[in-house]
């Protein structure tokens, strides 16, 4: 072999090696590949070249990742274009799920495709499929930090109480009499019996309650229109009361009632005073008043200057 041939061989080997590496790094070309479009709302960690596995075996790669836009009305925001070996496509059915999984502790991602049911038809190439969004571990961790912070705050604020509680618990456990375990066992036994009894008695009770509940249904059903009518009535009354004329009338009526009340009181007082009046008293009164009237007017039957006679004193009965 000539010198030039050997140099050419070196060139060929180097270029072949370089092409091989670049071929591997860019994900290569999956022969007889079918393209599928998988949409996600969140596809954290997936990159171009991320492997696609069916039943745990790599059958393709993620060729392209597209952002579909930030429209909140849209269900999904990310679309992965994956190339899957045509043979593996036979295992992917319409009910197959497309998960984004994590392998190993270094966290490398891969798209895991579950094999679907046999009775479902095979997924067609270029189909758009909704993937299963991976759990947001980052959010979970950050929320966990928040919760932990709040727990720490609570602990800090109630440190004294917690210490007292622990001390009390410690004292309780220290002073706990082991002979009381028997009592505890009895308590647990009784509870067990109680639960067993409830388990036995509760079903018939509930069975009896059933018809009652059935009756309650129509009652409640009738109560609804009644309540509606009552509500309407109250509403009308409220409307009438709000009327200005009605208010004035009520005020006048109240005033009249006050007046009437006062009159009744006076009449009652008067009647109280007139209770002793009888026939004799009236006759005597009229005599006396008549004498006075006569004397005052200068009646010819009564001599001038004569003094009126006082009526007898009133006797209260």
């Amino acid at each position: 072999m000539s010198q030039n041939s050997k140099v050419a061989l070196l060139f060929i080997a180097a270029v072949a090696g370089l092409v091989g590496i670049i071929f591997l790094l860019t994900g290569g070309v999956v022969r007889n590949a079918a393209t599928l479009y998988i949409t996600y709302n969140f596809a954290g960690g997936v990159q171009t070249g991320t492997p696609v596995r069916v039943a745990g075996i790599q059958v393709g790669k993620v060729r392209k990742i597209e952002f579909l836009g930030g429209d909140p009305a849209q269900d999904t925001h990310v679309q992965l274009t994956i190339d899957v070996d045509a043979k593996a496509l036979e295992s992917i059915r319409e009910d197959s799920q497309f998960y984004i999984n994590m392998a190993g502790i270094i966290g490398e991602r891969y798209v895991e495709v579950s094999t679907g049911s046999k009775d479902k038809p095979q997924v067609q190439p270029k189909a758009v499929i909704r993937g299963v969004d991976p759990p947001r571990l980052d959010q979970l961790i950050s929320q966990g930090y928040g919760v932990m912070g709040e727990v720490m705050d609570i602990i800090e604020k109630n440190r004294g109480k917690i210490e007292n509680m622990i001390a009390a618990l410690d004292a309780f456990l220290t002073n706990f009499d082991p002979s009381k375990f028997g009592d505890l066992a009895k308590l647990v036994g009784n509870l067990s019996h109680l639960v067993a009894a409830l388990d036995k008695d509760l079903p018939p009770l509930l069975a009896k309650a059933g018809p009652m509940m059935d009756d309650l249904g129509p009652v409640l059903k009738n109560a609804a229109p009644m309540l509606a009518d009552a509500r309407a009535l109250l509403s009308d009354v409220r409307g009438v009361l709000k009327d200005k004329n009605m208010g004035d009338m009520l005020k006048q009526m109240i005033s009249m009632l006050d007046t009437a009340d006062s009159m009744i009181k006076n009449a009652d007082h008067l009647l109280g005073n007139l209770q002793f009046v009888d026939e004799n008293w009236i006759r005597h009164f009229l005599q006396v008043e008549g004498v006075r009237a006569y004397a005052g007017l200068g009646s010819p039957n009564i001599p001038s200057g004569s003094k009126p006679v006082d009526p007898p004193p009133l006797k209260r009965r």
């Binding site: 070196l10 060139f11 080997a13 180097a14 270029v15 090696g17 370089l18 590496i21």
Partner: peptide, 15 residues
């Protein structure tokens, strides 16, 4: 040229 060629092959061999 040689070092570029050798480096390319070397990366594959080491890998």
């Amino acid at each position: 040229v040689s070092l570029v060629l050798l480096s390319s092959i070397a990366s594959l061999v080491a890998f």
